[in-house]
Design a protein around this nucleic acid. Structure first.
Lengths: 164, 164
DNA sequence: TCCAGATGAGTTGTCCCACAAACTATATTC
DNA sequence: GAATATAGTTTGTGGGACAACTCATCTGGA
C-alpha cells in the first residue's frame, strides 16, 4: 500500500490544473465582448467589491504585472466600464472606479459566472461544494495573510471541526 | 443576509488564481534545470505514473496543445529524461517512456514538490488538508469523467458523508 | 483492393502577452 | 532641498500559444 499511498495525492498539481483549465474554458465564453476576458472580469470584480486604493494595489491583489495592468485598465476604460480617478492626496495614484455601465455589466456577468462555477463543481453534492469553497477560501486567504473573514457560509466549517 | 450571501463565494475565481499562482511560485524554483519547469514536471510525472499510450493522449491529459507538446518532449529528450518509443502496432504513434535518469530525477523532485504543497496548505489543519485534497481530486476527476479511483486517503470522505 | 477520410506527429509562421528597462511625476525622508 | 522611493506609463523584445499546412500511417467502406 505504500506505493499507492505515496502516489495518492501526487496529482495535486494536475488536479489544480484541470480545475483551472476547466474554469477558464467554461467562464471565458460567457464574457463575450468584455476586454481581456477573465482578466477583465477579475479586475472589474475587484474594482467593485475589493476597494483597492491604487492601480498598483489592484495589480498586486490579482498578481498582475503593473506594466500589464496599464493596458488592461486602458481597454476597460475605452469600453466605458471603469474610470481612473485622480487622488488629490497623492497625485501619483489613480484609483480605479466602476462606472454605472460597468456595474450593470458586472452584475449580469457575475450571475452567469456563478452558474458556471456551480456546474464545474457538479461532481460534488451541496455540502461538499460548500466545504470545498470554504477550504479553498481559507487556503487562498492564508496564502495572502488575509483573515478569512467570518462568512455566512460556515456549514463546511462545522463539518470539518466538530468531529470525534 | 442575501447580499452578503450572494457575494460570499464570489471570489472563487480569485481564490483559485491565488492558489495556482502560489503553487507555481513555490514549485518552480524547486525544479532547477528541469526543462520547461512545471510543464516538464507534469509531463515527467504523467509519463511515469500515468501510462498514456501516445504523445497525443499525454497532451490531452495535460491540456497542452499537441504542437507545443512536440518541443516540450524534444527538450525532455535532449535532457535525457524521457524517450520516444516507436509503437510497432501503430507506426504513427510514439509512446513517451521515462529513462532511468528521468526516474531518479522525478523521484527527487516529487519529494520536494510534495513538501512545497504541504506548506501551501499550511493554513489548514491535517484533516482539512486531507479533505481539501480529496474534494479537489473529485472535482478534477469529475471534470474529466474519470472515476475518482478508490483511494487510501478516505479520511475526508468520512468527514463529509457521515453526518446527520 | 483501393480510395477517402481520420489520426499521430512535426514544421512553419504569426500574433499576443509577459517581463525588463527606462522614463516622468510626485511623495517622503533625512 | 538633495536623495531615495513609489505610482504609473511607454517601449522593446523574447517566448509561448495557436492556426495552417505537411507527412506518414491507419481504418472503414464501396
Amino acid at each position: 500500500m505504500t506505493p499507492q499511498e505515496g502516489r495518492a495525492d501526487g496529482d495535486f498539481g494536475w488536479h489544480l490544473g484541470v480545475l483551472l483549465s476547466a474554469y477558464h474554458g467554461s467562464v471565458t465564453p460567457l464574457l463575450g465582448e468584455l476586454p481581456h476576458a477573465m482578466r477583465g472580469y477579475q479586475i472589474l470584480s475587484t474594482v467593485v467589491h475589493g476597494d483597492q486604493p491604487t492601480q498598483a494595489a489592484l495589480a498586486a491583489h490579482l498578481s498582475i504585472d503593473r506594466t500589464v495592468m496599464t493596458y488592461l485598465i486602458d481597454d476597460l476604460v475605452k469600453a466605458g466600464l471603469v474610470e481612473r480617478q485622480l487622488n488629490p492626496a497623492d497625485r501619483r495614484a489613480r484609483k480605479i472606479v466602476v462606472t454605472p455601465l460597468g456595474e450593470r455589466t458586472l452584475a449580469e456577468l457575475e450571475q452567469r459566472v456563478r452558474e458556471a462555477e456551480e456546474s464545474l463543481l457538479g461532481g460534488l453534492d451541496e455540502r461538499q461544494r460548500a466545504a470545498f469553497r470554504d477550504l479553498l477560501r481559507r487556503v487562498a486567504c492564508g496564502l495572502r495573510d488575509i483573515e478569512p473573514q467570518a462568512d455566512p457560509c460556515v456549514a463546511a466549517e462545522h463539518v470539518l471541526t466538530e468531529l470525534p
